[in-house]
Computed example of a mutant assay.
Amino acid sequence: MRASPLPLLLAASVLTVLAACGAEPALDAPAASAPVVAGKKINLSPEQNRVRTAKVAAIAGKVPKEIAADGKLTVGFSAGGAPPLVSPATDDTTLIGVETDLAQLVADVLGLEFTPQSSSWENLFLAAKSSKYEAVFSNVTVTEERKDTYDFATYRIDQLAWQVPDNSPVKAIKGPADIAGLRVSVGSGTNQEKILLDWDKQNRAAGREPVEILYYERYGDVLLALKSGRVQAYFGPNPNIAYNIAVSGGSRIVGTFSGAGPDLQGLIAAMTKKGNGLVQPLNEALNTVIENGTYQQVLERWGLANEAVPESRINPPGLPRQPAS
């Protein structure tokens, strides 16, 4: 589930084929022109002409005064992201993607100026906790542990995928035994890392070979590691992987998994500091754009219609807490 100068190389999901949000990063050189996914061109330029919507005064009036005072909604995004979630445009500066588009819609409903900010993945959480960022829209999964510190308003389903090179002997990854002894890459501090560590713990307890885990800050580095054989598989957000495969090829998805574990459908959510009073207006704004159709327009624009939710929920059940070691 992280700004990189590889906006085209780092493609991510947009096909109905990718119903489970999992794909492989393209291992070839980036395309010279706008990528085409599901028969439509994806705009990676800074001139986005984003889908917009109208202010709803009744919801805007619920934004806490201290947040609304400057007339801005300051939103954090991961600097190392990849399309179609969030990534730098072709100017290597403007942040674009489904996450920025949805945050813009929410800011519109709240009558606030959308003010995007970029940081490392880990610092998103510190910035939200300190109120430096009033909200975070960056493919953040709801987890029980995170709910201790943050409030969440959901807006997409969360699917993870296993990516391997086309020539990999690995045919399917369905559970812990399938990754025993492999060199695997995963994002640090992510929910997929928690799932991977749990699988490795199960393997060790069963006497299987441990997993060798390698960490890279950017998805582009993961792709290079896959191509060179430094890692044999990558466990990450299905949209990024699927988009990359669709645009560049060179790899396969060999398994998908809910971001909340085997017993619960994971959910992606807007994150804000717990108890700051913003989650309710965020939730109502998201439900407004779901109802007026602009939400669906954004997801379709980025090829993620299959990750739509029927409604936004506040603090639903999330990835369970990890058992103590």
Rank of each mutant, 00 (worst) to 15 (best):
P64L: 01
P35R: 14
V98D: 12
P46V: 00
A38S: 10
P116Y: 03
V98S: 14
K129E: 15
L85P: 11
P116I: 05
G80F: 14
L126Q: 15
G71K: 06
L126D: 15
K40N: 04
T90W: 06
R52D: 02
A82F: 03
L124R: 14
L110H: 11
S45G: 02
P83W: 10
V109E: 13
V51H: 10
T115K: 10
F77R: 04
V109D: 11
S130A: 11
V136S: 05
S119I: 12
F125H: 14
T93M: 12
A20I: 03
A135W: 00
L112A: 01
A68K: 13
D101P: 01
L124S: 12
L27T: 03
S131R: 13
L110G: 06
F114T: 08
P116A: 09
P84M: 00
D101R: 01
A20V: 04
A68N: 04
A19K: 11
A58T: 11
E47K: 13
Y133P: 07
D108Q: 02
Q117P: 09
E122G: 05
A38I: 01
L27K: 02
K40R: 05
G71V: 03
A89G: 11
C21Q: 00
A58H: 04
Q48W: 11
K40E: 07
N123H: 10
A60N: 13
E113S: 04
I96T: 04
I67G: 06
V63M: 02
E122Q: 13
S118F: 02
T115H: 12
T93C: 11
L10T: 15
E66V: 08
V51C: 04
E122Y: 08
A32W: 04
A34H: 11
A89Q: 08
A34C: 10
P84T: 00
C21Y: 00
K65Y: 09
F114W: 13
V17H: 14
A23V: 02
K65W: 10
T94M: 09
L102R: 05
I42G: 06
W121K: 15
A60D: 12
A12P: 08
E99R: 01
F114E: 07
E134G: 07
W121R: 14
F77C: 07
L110T: 04
T16F: 03
F137E: 12
A79N: 07
N43T: 04
T16V: 07
L85V: 13
E122W: 06
D101K: 01
A127S: 14
Q48H: 03
D70F: 13
A82P: 02
N43W: 03
S87K: 13
V14L: 11
D108L: 00
P64R: 09
K41I: 05
S138R: 06
A57L: 02
S130Q: 15
K40F: 00
V51S: 10
G97E: 09
G97M: 04
A68Q: 09
D70T: 00
V98Y: 08
N123L: 11
A57C: 02
A12Y: 03
G80Y: 15
P35G: 04
L126F: 09
K132N: 12
Q48E: 11
T93P: 02
L44N: 06
A128N: 13
L85D: 15
D28P: 01
T115F: 14
V14H: 15
S120R: 15
K62C: 02
L112Q: 01
S138A: 12
A69W: 13
T16C: 05
A60C: 06
P116C: 09
D70G: 03
N123V: 06
S130N: 14
L18M: 14
S87F: 11
K72A: 05
